[in-house]
């Protein structure tokens, strides 16, 4: 087990630079305790990926990452035979029967392990990050389900490989597609939303050390106000940090209309959002 208590989770994640909300700390603790994969959902830029990295660092574990995308398949996620190498081996043509050659080319030496297989092989502790699961096609979910149920993988030519130590598994999703009920049932569920003001202030001050405390407070309040507006894309923690860095670089020590007006583009990505926010924050005069 990686953690002794919820407080232990918070404290050790904080050492790596990840500030966990009570919900995050509690759920990470339980995922470790119950040995279940953790499904993390939430808007972009709230630290879902970062969480898995932080857990790996804390655990002194290798981070194995399966980045999902449309079209990712078994040969990218699980394993694949190294055909080129197999061909070379065959054409090197030793004196042997086909059966002998076949046994040889379907051995570990010719196997290209992909993240899911890598994560369950070997004895060192691992954190398996299945990132942006919702981007993968539905068929891949079946594969994940299989691997995450038994933590074993069957390679027909080799036999079944079973994990000797189970990895700590984090799946992330932006919910662009609803994941199947079956996969959800395998996991503990954690929604990471935007942090509350106090936590976001701490994150900003940690990530942007030179920032003055009062300015950090103003930054977080403005971001909070933007999140209440009906925007196409509200700023996330990542944008808060970027904005704070920008303000620091601009040498601004307090906010005023001009500085907010000029740097709003760091927070908002769509032109109509910028226009709407400009009006609502009374920046028109600038």
């Amino acid at each position: 087990m990686l953690f002794t208590s919820v407080d232990d989770v918070s404290a050790r994640l904080a050492e790596t630079g990840y500030l966990a909300s009570p919900a995050v700390a509690t759920t990470v603790f339980l995922a470790d305790r119950l040995g279940k994969p953790l499904l993390v959902e939430g808007p972009a830029g709230v630290g879902k990926t970062e969480l898995a990295k932080a857990v790996a660092e804390v655990a002194g574990a290798q981070l194995v990452r399966l980045q999902c995308y449309e079209g990712v398949d078994e040969s990218r996620a699980l394993y694949e035979w190294n055909h080129a190498k197999q061909l070379l081996r065959i054409s090197a043509g030793r004196d042997e029967t086909w059966d002998e050659a076949r046994t040889d080319i379907f051995s570990e030496e010719f196997l290209l392990a992909r993240p899911l297989l890598t994560a369950i092989r070997g004895d060192e502790p691992k954190v398996l990050l299945i990132d942006e699961t919702d981007k993968a096609d539905v068929e891949v979910e079946g594969l994940l389900l299989e691997v995450l149920s038994d933590f074993q993988v069957t390679v027909p030519e080799l036999g079944t490989i079973t994990a000797t130590s189970r990895p700590f598994v984090v799946l992330t999703s932006n919910a662009s597609r609803e994941l199947s009920e079956a996969l959800r049932r395998r996991c503990l569920f954690l929604h990471i939303g935007f942090p509350d003001e106090a936590l976001e202030r701490r994150i900003v001050r940690l990530k942007v050390p030179g920032l003055d405390e009062a300015l950090a407070e103003s930054v977080v309040r403005v971001v909070g106000a933007l999140r209440e507006m009906d925007l196409r894309k509200v700023p996330s923690v990542a944008e808060t940090i970027d904005w704070a860095r920008t303000l620091l670089a601009l040498g601004a020590d307090t906010l005023d209309e001009a500085v907010v007006h000029d740097s709003l583009g760091v927070l908002l990505k769509h032109q109509d959002d910028v226009l709407k926010a400009t009006a609502k924050l009374d920046l028109d005069a600038v």
Partner: peptide
Amino acid sequence: DAAQALEALGLADRERLREGLAATLLHS
């Protein structure tokens, strides 16, 4: 799972209990 979460977390902190039960019982 929820019963295990309850056991692992104890009752000392109500908000942690809330998060722990939500994590085990909910799926969305």
